[in-house]
C-alpha cells in the first residue's frame, strides 16, 4: 500500500451530504463526533468545504433538486474520494422508492463504496461501516 493511501485511511476527513433525508441519519452522523463515540480518535474530522473532503457521507433518498447539486459537488471533490451511503434511503430508497420526487437511486448517480443500512443506523453502525470501508480500501477485507 502506498504511503498516500495509508495516510488517507488514517485521516479521512468527511463531508456530510443530505440528499433529502428525514434528518435522523444526519443527526446520528453528527452524534459520532460527540463525547460518547468521538471519531476524532480515528483521525476523522467533519469538514465544511467539499474541497477538503476525503469521504462523502451521503444520506437521504436523492430527490430531484439535490441530485443536480450532488453531481456538481462530485465533480468538485478532489480525488481520491470515497463515498459512504448512510441509511436505508440511500441503499434502496426504502419507503420512498415510488415517490415522484425521488427518481433514481444513489448508486446510479455516483459510485458508492460502502452501504450502512438502518433507519437510522446507530452511531456504532456508522463507525463499523467506516472501519469496513478502511478495510476494504486497504485490501484487508
Amino acid at each position: 500500500m502506498s504511503l498516500k493511501l495509508k495516510a488517507l485511511l488514517k485521516s479521512p476527513w468527511v463531508f456530510h451530504l443530505s440528499t433529502g433525508s428525514c434528518n435522523n441519519c444526519d443527526i446520528e452522523t453528527l452524534d459520532c463526533l460527540t463525547p460518547r463515540f468521538d471519531i476524532e480518535r480515528f483521525g476523522m474530522l467533519l469538514v465544511g468545504s467539499i474541497k477538503h473532503a476525503d469521504v462523502l457521507l451521503v444520506s437521504g433518498s436523492c430527490n430531484r433538486m439535490s441530485v443536480e447539486r450532488l453531481k456538481v459537488l462530485w465533480d468538485q471533490v478532489p480525488k481520491p474520494c470515497l463515498v459512504v451511503a448512510i441509511g436505508t434511503c440511500t441503499g434502496s430508497r426504502g419507503l420512498f422508492i415510488d415517490s415522484y420526487n425521488c427518481p433514481v437511486p444513489l448508486d446510479k448517480i455516483i459510485p458508492v463504496d460502502v452501504y450502512i443500512p438502518g433507519c437510522p443506523p446507530k452511531p456504532e453502525a456508522i463507525i463499523a461501516g467506516a472501519v469496513k470501508l478502511i478495510q476494504k480500501v486497504g485490501g484487508t477485507l
Binding site: K4, A7, W13, T34, D38, E40, R41, P78
Partner: peptide
Amino acid sequence: ARVQYRVGPPFLQPFIDLVKLLGKETV
C-alpha cells in the same frame, strides 16, 4: 478533546493529515 470529555486524536495525527493532503488532487 479533554475539555469536551473526548479522547482526542492520536499523537501522529497532524503528520498523517499533512501527508494525506499532500497526496490529494489540487482542484
